[in-house]
Amino acid sequence: MADVTMTVNGKTVSKTVEDRTLLVQFLREGAGLTGTHVGCDTSQCGACVVHVDGKAVKSCTMLAAQAAGSEVTTIEGLASGGELHPVQAAFREHHGLQCGFCTPGMIMAAVDMINRLGGPLDEATIRAELEGNICRCTGYHNIVKAIAAASAEMAGVRTAAE
């Protein structure tokens, strides 16, 4: 067993867990943050994406013990003061989600993408950067639109009226 302490969404979380516990299990079962999902077992679907020390990672492909001492942000920690993050708001505005299962990972990946690359982002870049996130509902069309809009907004650029 391992004593694991990390900061999750600004709060210290300490649990004693089996060494084999994945970060996603620590978050879901230990911290009670069930917004992070598991959609595959081959580390490909991206439903589990969270930020560890500011970078998007697959929380199903990291042991909780590896993240000990790290700052972790999950989908639950993205909105601040009741205000949706611009990416969250854009997903709603552009209908970038249907069943909602891939959505937390998609949004966390999108925030990371915009943090790394700035904005506004073009369609080809967004589609390429989404390689690690699978959605079965939306056909990606509106996810791409949402991320483009959010990246433009976050870059302070006004989107062209559609």
Partner: peptide, 9 residues
Amino acid sequence: IGDPHVRHR
């Protein structure tokens, strides 16, 4: 290599 999340680890 892989995808952005994989490249971070």
